[in-house]
Design a protein around this nucleic acid. Structure first.
Length: 267
DNA sequence: ATGGTTGAGGTTCAA
């Protein structure tokens, strides 16, 4: 496999954030970029702008208004697959197989609404169902597809150091025990390795999202690590670097998420 | 204390 670098970012509208994505790509120069919450139908995706930045190979799975994922690459794909879990074509999961490279899954897991109760909140129920469906697939048909990378906005902060206060967040959607248990099961289903925590030790607090509903996001630093980059065990020895780009949260009209990057050695 | 902000699209909803 040749060396590979990936940047993943929930941009919360690719059209609003286009110049910011361009700036991140110019700085980080990844081979592949995975976007979530593009919020645009494929016909309106700014394909030409990304092609001019060097990302001529594009796998889109978008819809009007909500959700939407995209994979943009400097080199061709051998295969592209779009998934519709829980019977919904809601544009949350696309996978590509890179030429001379691994499978790459780009995911936008449902946020789950505000109330962490599947009985009263259908959005939370859907989030749990989505995680269960994905886990079942990776435990079955998905397993032999190694090597593989999984990135995206998983909307779960699994570790105590992935949130600003473990105690205060236990009843807040994104850090509740049933969600964390399901994310752990998803990871176990293909023995996924948390590549970011492989590089940045779990004892260190690390966040990739800060709410818009705070005047000064840095003042309280009430962040959560919702965005992830995982690899199958065969790729773990190749992990060279993982990083985030918190400075983007300070830009004018920012996304509420920041980019997550991963680079792998060739071998 | 049940607020607060953002984006898309349409006069509200999801995040």
């Amino acid at each position: 496999m040749s060396p590979l670098s990936v940047v993943s970012w929930n941009v919360n509208s690719v059209r609003v954030r286009l110049s910011q994505v361009a700036a991140v790509l110019a700085e980080t120069q990844p081979d592949v970029v995975c976007l979530q919450e593009t919020r645009v139908a494929d016909g309106s995706f700014p394909a030409k702008a990304f092609a001019e930045m060097g990302y001529a190979h594009q796998a889109l799975y978008g819809m009007k208004t909500h959700n939407g994922v995209a994979v943009l690459a400097r080199r061709p794909f051998r295969a592209v697959e779009r998934y519709a879990w829980c019977g919904q074509r809601d544009c949350r999961h696309i996978a590509v197989r890179l030429a001379e490279g691994p499978w790459l899954h780009n995911l936008y897991i449902p946020a789950g609404g505000d109330v962490p109760d599947p009985e009263s909140n259908p959005r939370f129920a859907h989030k749990l169902d989505f995680l269960d469906a994905l886990t079942a697939w990776f435990a079955g048909a998905g397993t032999p597809r190694e090597p593989a990378i999984l990135v995206g906005d998983l909307n779960v902060a699994p570790l105590p150091t992935d949130v600003w206060s473990h105690e205060k967040m236990l009843k807040v959607v994104s850090h509740t025990p049933p969600e964390v248990a399901r994310l752990d099961s998803l990871a176990d289903a293909a023995s996924w390795v948390d590549a970011v925590r492989h590089v940045i030790p779990p004892r260190e607090h690390l966040y990739t999202w800060w709410s818009y509903r705070t005047r000064d996001w840095k003042a309280g630093n009430r962040g959560r690590r919702l965005d992830h980059a995982w690899v199958t065990p065969d790729l773990a020895p190749a992990i060279r670097d993982a990083f985030t780009r918190p400075e983007t949260r300070d830009w004018e009209r920012p996304s509420d998420h920041i980019p997550v990057g991963l680079s792998l050695d060739g071998g």
